[in-house]
Design a protein around this nucleic acid. Structure first.
Length: 643
DNA sequence: GCGATCAGCT
DNA sequence: CACAGCTGATCGC
């Protein structure tokens, strides 16, 4: 849970993710994502009153976050005061004190955070330096390198401070299986179950928070079905989610909720009360997404754990693991790091101490002095040749050429170096894209093609329709290979806020649980990405300004341990959806951007306008709900003068 | 009656 | 154990 007080040292006239107390006086507000612990005070009457008198105060957030926020009536009063910004679009904001008329300029850029739909990090650039507020994030190893706006031309930006999601910044949480690996495990479990008969249904025991949509869309795609949820209201303008969820109970995959859903489940009932039309009892299993983590040297990781009876837990994390956070930090190498979260059983002092080695002055670099722009070049790296056997490891530089869409552009040529506009070079799913799971995640096209398998007319399970699943998918019992005993002595953990009640009898103690770890065959996740024989080293030797060159094929030892390559390989593939670029989006203007950076660097004034993102009702911005970081050029949107 | 806070629980 | 958030009790305005 975030304990960030709302204000950063460098830009103290703005408030982020906190809206109470001193934050009531802020000149501008920022919301990184739509989770309640980041919205404290946001519906408070004090703030509501302030908006009536303060004409220039705005709330800045992503387009998806705006949509989610306004879908809740309690926040409807924000409607006229929200400025929704597009991702990767540097936006100039004037921070005006309405009493004194005093003004400060800042340029903010939203970076995808991979935490939940609409979640972003905020990159602020201005007179007080470049500062990154991460909000909550789940980024994979190497993702920072894909973020254009963490770079200035060929260089990694010189970042003064990072306000960091430290939820799992603790060596205990060294490794968390990638999203892809978790998804594969969940898909296998579900398939093995629902293919047995139309009466075999799955209940995804998800908590009341955004972030599980990733599961719904992928499962909907995988099983050509829709997931039953309580409400579609919040997704009404997000077709890419909407097409995979339904309020029709006649489906084999449920994520519906009820105040007493656990109790109902123990009585073999779904939260929605759905039964089969002919009275045949449903066979229900519950899958509870839970965070699981593994030690530094754990080789195999199980992403599904059977809790006994028909309860399972599936690995699922909204936050980056320790090694993912370290990778992120070592890439951007900030001067200061401030924790936003204090992990359980730790103190601020302990976390601060753990973060010290990642700060620039302790990172082994010579340069300590903060400069607005880095001086060392970020070189381009050729994408390793594709090969079925190799593993893509720590491929920070190697992911860059994924943007090349045609043979016209030599693989070593970056977007920024190209004469062509970036938009021409950014083609999703190009042949040189980074490895993707065996089944492509939902894409732009499918959002419009997807036809609901089931109609809303029926509220009961329909045999003829459900039996499609039976004929489509091979019927197996729970395949033995899934249930690989945990032969590792290495600590393996999982958690859930859920009590450990067991469905049958509930007499077991945790140690007595019929715990059947399922080998997630992370290998199978990795296999889909084993396209590179060359293992590219990912670490820039703790120097963000050091030239990024082709890395040696063999990874050098890391301080962390002896066998982190395997762990890293998993993390490496954990990137999110690879969604297509928003159709119709403008071509980036790198020249314009560079000019802006130059001005910022020299302390020159930049125009006092507020550049807002489009508020068009087009559905395309919602594609960005889980956008994988990718190198795109910046673009400036239209501008509105506040005065 | 409403908001803030906390304990308990999922 | 841990994610996010609900419900209910209590207290103060």
């Amino acid at each position: 849970m975030s304990s960030f007080p709302g204000r950063m040292k460098e830009y103290s006239t703005i408030s982020i993710d906190r809206f109470d107390k001193e934050n009531l006086h802020a000149r501008a507000y920022f919301l990184s994502h739509c989770h309640k612990d980041h919205m404290k005070g946001l519906k408070g009457p004090l703030l509501k009153r302030k908006l009536k008198f303060c004409l220039t105060v705005r709330l800045y957030c992503s387009i998806v976050t705006k949509e989610l926020l306004l879908s809740n009536r309690k926040y409807a009063f924000w409607e006229e005061h929200i400025v929704a910004l597009e991702l990767d679009s540097p936006t100039h904001i004037s921070l005006i004190d309405e009493v004194t008329g005093e003004s400060e300029d800042v340029v903010v850029t939203l970076l995808p955070a991979g935490h939940c739909p609409g979640s972003v990090m905020f990159l602020f650039e201005g007179a007080q330096g470049t500062v990154l507020y991460t909000g909550d994030f789940r980024l994979a190893v190497g993702d920072a390198a894909r973020m254009e706006h963490l770079h200035s031309g060929d260089r990694v930006k010189d970042i003064k401070s990072v306000y960091l999601d430290t939820t799992f910044y603790d060596p205990r949480f060294y490794q968390i299986p990638s999203r892809e690996a978790c998804l594969i495990g969940i898909k296998e479990l579900i398939q093995d179950w629902i293919s047995q008969s139309p009466y075999h249904v799955v209940w995804l025991n998800c908590k009341a928070a955004y972030g599980y949509e990733y599961l719904f869309t992928n499962l909907g795609e995988e099983f050509a079905s829709q997931v039953h949820v309580n409400s579609l209201d919040m997704y009404r303008k997000m077709p890419e989610i909407l097409s995979y969820v339904t309020t029709n109970r006649a489906t084999q995959i449920h994520a519906c909720r009820h105040p007493k859903d656990e109790e109902l489940f123990r009585a073999n009932r779904l939260p929605c009360g759905c039964t089969s039309p002919d009275g045949t009892p449903l066979r229900i299993i519950s899958i509870k997404p839970s965070t699981m983590w593994f030690g530094e040297r754990t080789r195999k990781t199980k992403v599904i754990v059977r809790m006994g009876g028909s309860s399972y837990r599936a690995c699922f994390s909204f936050h980056s693991s320790y090694s993912e956070i370290k990778d992120f930090l070592s890439y951007i190498c900030p001067v200061n790091i401030y924790p936003n979260v204090i992990p359980l059983a730790r103190t601020v002092e302990e976390v601060t101490e753990l973060l010290k080695p990642m700060c620039r002055k302790n990172s082994g670099r010579n340069e300590v002095v903060y400069k607005p722009l880095g001086m060392l070049k970020r070189a381009r790296t050729e994408y390793p040749s594709q090969d079925e056997e190799g593993e893509l490891l720590n491929s920070k530089p190697s992911v860059l050429p994924a943007r090349h869409s045609s043979g016209d552009n030599p693989p070593t040529q970056s977007c920024l170096q190209s004469d062509k506009p970036c938009s021409e070079m950014v083609t999703p799913h190009s042949h040189s894209d980074p490895p993707s799971p065996k089944k492509a995640p939902p894409t732009w096209a499918t959002f419009f093609k997807a036809e609901p398998v089931l109609t809303d007319e029926s509220s009961e399970l329909d045999n003829s329709q459900s039996s499609q699943a039976l004929s489509t998918y091979h019927t197996t019992s729970q395949s033995p290979e899934l249930f690989d005993e945990d032969d590792e002595s290495e600590s393996v953990h999982m958690t859930s806020s859920q009590s450990t009640h067991i469905s049958d009898g509930g007499t077991e103690t945790p140690s007595q649980l019929d715990t059947v770890p399922v080998q997630a065959e992370l290998d199978s996740a990795a296999q889909s990405s084993k396209q590179n024989k060359i293992q590219t080293n990912q670490k820039p030797e703790n120097d963000p300004h050091r030239p990024i060159e082709k890395e040696p094929a063999v990874r050098k030892d890391q301080s962390e341990g002896t066998d982190c390559t395997e762990a890293m390989s998993d993390s490496q593939v954990s990137s999110d959806f690879d969604l297509p670029q928003t159709p119709g989006s403008k071509a980036p203007h790198n020249d314009e951007l560079k000019e802006l950076y130059k001005k910022l660097a020299s302390g020159e004034e930049v125009p006092k306008t507020i550049i807002t993102a489009t508020t068009k009702t087009s559905l395309s911005p919602f594609l960005l709900f889980f956008q994988r970081p990718r190198m795109t050029g910046g673009k400036m949107s239209g501008s509105i003068d506040l005065h």
